[in-house]
């Protein structure tokens, strides 16, 4: 098995692992972490596609690699936006769970706002 195929399989496993964490972890910050795991798994799949596209004297296809670089930056921007929304939700309601079935299950610990 070549290193790139191995990396691609790791990417596939990371997508599965991230998906699992995204579903079962109730804390939104943990969900963001899990979502980033899925993202890096997808990027690794791009990595194997880039490596397999080696041609014209390059050991890789630079186009998927460039897409991964922009993708990492965009993933960070999306995470930052999600974190800002969670912190605002916490300020407003004192809650950090996205549990709309049982909104009163947590007492407001910090109080709304400051």
């Amino acid at each position: 098995m070549t290193p790139s195929t191995l990396a691609g399989l790791v990417g596939a496993a990371l997508v599965g692992l991230g998906l699992y964490g995204l579903i079962v972890n109730p804390q939104p910050l943990r969900k963001i972490l899990a979502f980033n795991l899925i993202g890096s798994g997808v990027f690794l799949v791009f990595g194997i596609v880039a490596r397999k596209g080696a041609a014209a004297g390059f050991p890789f296809d630079p186009v998927p690699q460039a897409m991964v670089i922009t993708g990492i930056v965009v993933a960070f921007a999306a995470s930052a936006l999600a974190v800002a929304l969670i912190l605002r939700l916490h300020e407003e309601t004192g809650q950090v769970l996205l549990d709309d079935e049982n909104p009163a299950s947590l007492p407001s610990e910090q109080g709304a706002g400051k």
Binding site: T5, G8, L9, G11, A12, A13, V15, G16, L17, L19, G41, V45, I48, V49, K52, G53, A54, A55, A56, F58, F60, D61, P62, V63
Partner: peptide
């Protein structure tokens, strides 16, 4: 994960590439 791994193992040879244009 299994479906994705299957796709990775079944990637076409030779792969499509934009390296010559690059």
């Amino acid at each position: 994960a299994t479906a994705l791994a299957g796709v990775i193992l079944a990637l076409p040879e030779p792969s499509p590439t934009l390296a010559p244009e690059a």
